[in-house]
Amino acid sequence: MAHEFKYFEDFEIGDIEIEKTASRTITESDMVFHSMHSGDWMPHHNDEEWCKTQPFKTRIAHGNLSFCVGTGLIVMASDMNPNVMSYGYDKLRYPHPVIPGDTLTASVKVIDKKDHPKRKTHGLMTHGETVTNQKGEVVCYAEHVFYTLRRTPLD
């Protein structure tokens, strides 16, 4: 049976696209590899002794690591819809730190839809993507905008 992919008209503001993804625990190795990939060797992420003198008292993961892991969890939980592709992000926040041993999950909700300013064949749909830790604290929030094919182009 062929999968029916959604078009712009099929998405509604408030739709829960993913209630809760699988989970992933952040390890010390994740933090070291992220430092190597990004080139960000700031002591907040890599110097436990220095961090003991700081407000969180331990190393914290890069915000972008939380974002990347959350994105991966969302992709693993999603069907590949050829009618939708990333247009970019309008907002990205890290309200709580992630420390080694934290376990992250993600959820996705449709928060906005609007006509594309130039293309009558597509609309712009925005997902609110929330990554939380095992305590239910939001560790990453992103507004992901998608270029979404219309079933019926506008006149």
Rank of each mutant, 00 (worst) to 15 (best):
A2G: 11
E4N: 15
Y7N: 03
Y7D: 07
F8D: 09
E9Y: 07
E9A: 11
D10T: 04
D10L: 09
F11I: 09
E12C: 14
I13E: 14
G14C: 10
G14V: 09
D15S: 13
D15F: 01
E17V: 15
I18S: 14
I18D: 14
E19S: 15
K20W: 02
K20P: 08
A22R: 07
S23T: 04
R24N: 01
R24V: 06
I26N: 00
T27D: 06
E28V: 14
V32Y: 11
F33T: 12
F33P: 02
H37S: 13
H37D: 10
S38M: 03
D40V: 11
D40W: 15
M42Y: 15
P43C: 02
N46E: 09
D47T: 10
D47H: 05
E48S: 14
E49Q: 06
W50C: 09
K52G: 07
T53L: 06
T53F: 07
Q54K: 11
Q54A: 08
K57V: 00
K57D: 02
T58W: 01
T58Y: 01
I60A: 05
A61C: 08
H62F: 00
G70W: 00
G70D: 02
L73I: 02
L73K: 02
I74R: 14
M76F: 02
M76K: 14
M76A: 12
S78N: 03
D79R: 13
M80K: 08
N81Q: 05
P82K: 01
N83L: 13
N83T: 10
M85L: 13
M85P: 07
S86T: 12
Y87I: 04
D90E: 12
L92G: 15
L92F: 10
R93I: 09
Y94S: 05
P95E: 10
I99E: 13
P100M: 00
D102H: 06
S107Y: 01
V108E: 15
V110C: 04
V110H: 13
I111W: 00
I111H: 00
I111L: 03
K113G: 05
K113L: 03
K114I: 01
K114D: 03
H116N: 05
R119Y: 07
K120W: 07
H122I: 06
L124T: 04
M125I: 14
T126D: 09
G128V: 07
E129N: 08
T130E: 05
T130K: 02
V131K: 01
T132H: 04
T132D: 05
Q134E: 07
K135M: 03
K135G: 05
G136H: 12
E137S: 13
E137D: 13
V139C: 06
Y141C: 06
A142W: 03
E143A: 12
E143C: 09
F146R: 12
F146W: 12
Y147N: 01
Y147A: 01
T148A: 05
T148P: 00
R150L: 11
L154N: 12
L154G: 11
D155A: 15
